[in-house]
Design a protein around this nucleic acid. Structure first.
Lengths: 349, 349
DNA sequence: ACTGTCGTTGACATCGTTGTCAATCGGGCG
DNA sequence: CGCCCGATTGACAACGATGTCAACGACAGT
């Protein structure tokens, strides 16, 4: 046990350097460098003396100092920008990126976007000033042309979840249009004709694609546009809840709802319960949610595969770092319809 | 639009340095440094020339190079170790830390622990080699004495969620024993006598405290220990589900269950549904879970306040960085009983 | 006109590490 | 015995930035 007051005395903030390890071991700094980095041509005995000294001083090399001089200029660090580290979807993406990175000794900076273009710019700038080796980005700006100089400089940039605009770079996204269409087809096949679409902020590319997929399938099903409510610019649980409440209380309430995002689905679930309509109004959500299987009825969803998005995005970054100079890849990860009950409710007659 | 093949040509990996900005602006490097860092004593005209040059070159200063020489030696970086960035509890902690850090221009490295002592050591080492200004740690090792040299060196270390052992450092934890006791009292007040405790790995300090709180309240309620099932070393949804299934299928099935952690609660919910016992077996979970209010019955929980844990932990780190040398703080964040139905089910007669 | 002061600026050393290169040493071989 | 070669080692410069300090010029006061 050591008291904190002690630490102020002894804790002169001094951290051992390679020079100090070298002095203690009675060798030159370069020899310490060789031992620490596992370079060849050091006798076993010398190496042991160096390791003992490093251990005794509790030495940890300064990665950034080394990086300054090292030829490859790699910080072994990645910048990850997601919607919010608090969102389960983002958490799964993050975890997959971390797992891919940890295996390579790469640490991950994570930042939350909150769909704020300014936060995006600031986060990217913070990443670049720290000289991350690569960027994995979910973006909120209309165009990401500001990243062009960085891309030309050779920094791997991979867009995840949302497609880039104004820049040709790797992207890993869900099949948003396809998944939304699948949801509509599922609802139509159960006899629904009066549908509602509850969507995210219009500026977001995924929201756009899901809306297009939804509308295409509606048209494909021969449903007149007038029978469909399209509500957009929802962004959180409460706005989605209120929007659906208004629909349910209105003149021609939908018999089936498609909620285009996890928080919107949760808001929709609340609205249906609020009006006691959860057993007679069909619901299909985009993106799976925890406990969806235990609700009554279970929540039918178009599940995304965020682990795959994160893993593949990280793999693209590392492939670029390993020298892959092929044209920009665009990887589309499929979605999966998970039938649990809410999507199979028939329309009220 | 720029093709990626082009980038390999022009992308010579060259990144502009302060020297290049200085040359373009026709000034010395130190003047550029002054402008970039907003130091005084530069004429407006010179400053503008420098800013123009920096803009033209898309210059971003190298924080780590500057840090090497700067007096304060601050990387404006924090290391955060949580159970898993994929877990909602950890996500909330993370988000709170990020919000506190972002306001100060500090970036956050996040790592997942997976309750693996070796991962803990590796993550901490990775943080230290990158010279983070402070550490916020959820730990899995039995003792964290290995951190003593670092603490003495003056690095702020704050333990979050789980208490430290063998080291006197700041800690921010939930009132685990109190929350668990509250759960038991709640169940006893509804007439239950045959209870079950479903707990996490025994080595985890929070699991220990929740178990002690549970048992203390059991004794306080005059319940014979023989009437209580204590199942430990559960760690994920499936192990919890199986454990509770065995209890439900056994001779004296509990009438009330206390699940000591969010994943265990979810596993317990599944087991109860599997046997159709969710309406006649009481359940109180530790840690709130998403959609708990929409289940039938709603899930009564002892809610933690992960945002507070994260925010306070970050504040402690920054207070230490700002010179606070007071003795180690131990902050206990209270829990909140949220009544939703499952905890108020009476015992089967 | 001279001196002192202050604002502006840049040369230089330096932070902790690694790349380069030369010095040293021991041993094998002619 | 002398030479060459490879293994081992350390001195030194350099990475990109900032702290120190001195030089310079303008200007006020005497």
């Amino acid at each position: 046990m050591t008291s904190l007051s002690e630490r102020q005395v002894s804790g002169n903030g001094s951290r051992p350097t390679m020079r100090q390890v070298a002095e203690l071991a009675g060798v030159g700094v370069k020899t310490v460098s060789r031992v620490i980095n596992g370079e060849p041509n050091v006798t076993a005995e010398t190496a042991q003396r160096v390791l003992d000294a490093a251990r005794a001083l509790d030495y940890e090399p300064d990665l950034h100092a080394g990086n300054l001089r090292r030829a490859d200029r790699r910080t072994r660090t990645l910048g990850l920008l997601v919607g919010s580290v608090d969102n389960p979807f983002a958490g799964a993406v993050h975890r997959a990126v971390e797992d891919a990175a940890a295996g390579r000794g790469v640490a991950v900076f994570a930042s939350s976007l909150d769909d704020d273009p300014q936060r995006e710019r600031e986060a990217v700038s913070a990443f670049l000033r720290r000289r991350v080796d690569g960027l994995i980005l979910t973006t909120a700006t209309a165009k990401q042309t500001y990243l062009l100089p960085e891309l030309r400089r050779g920094t791997p940039i991979v867009f995840v979840d949302r497609e880039p605009s104004g820049i040709e770079a790797d992207a890993v996204v869900s099949d948003n249009a396809g998944g939304a269409a699948r949801a509509v087809e599922h609802l139509l096949s159960h006899g629904h004709r009066r549908l509602a679409y509850l969507g995210d902020l219009r500026g977001i590319t995924t929201a756009h694609h899901r809306r297009e997929g939804f509308l295409d399938a509606i048209r494909g099903g021969g449903i007149p546009a007038a029978d469909v409510h399209v509500i957009e610019d929802l962004h959180d649980e409460s706005s989605a809840r209120e929007a659906l409440l208004r629909l349910l209380d209105g003149p021609d309430a939908p018999t089936a709802v498609f909620s285009a995002q996890n928080l919107i689905t949760i808001g929709a679930l609340h609205a249906l319960r609020d009006r006691g309509r959860h057993r007679d109004t069909a619901l299909v959500g985009f993106d799976d949610i925890e406990l969806a299987d235990l609700l009554e009825p279970g929540v039918t969803v178009i599940a995304q595969h965020p682990e795959d998005l994160g893993r593949i995005a990280a793999e693209r970054v590392f492939a670029r770092l390993d020298g892959d100079a092929s044209p920009a890849h665009r990887v589309v990860v499929g979605t999966t319809l998970i039938v649990r009950g809410s999507g199979e409710i028939p329309p009220r007659s």
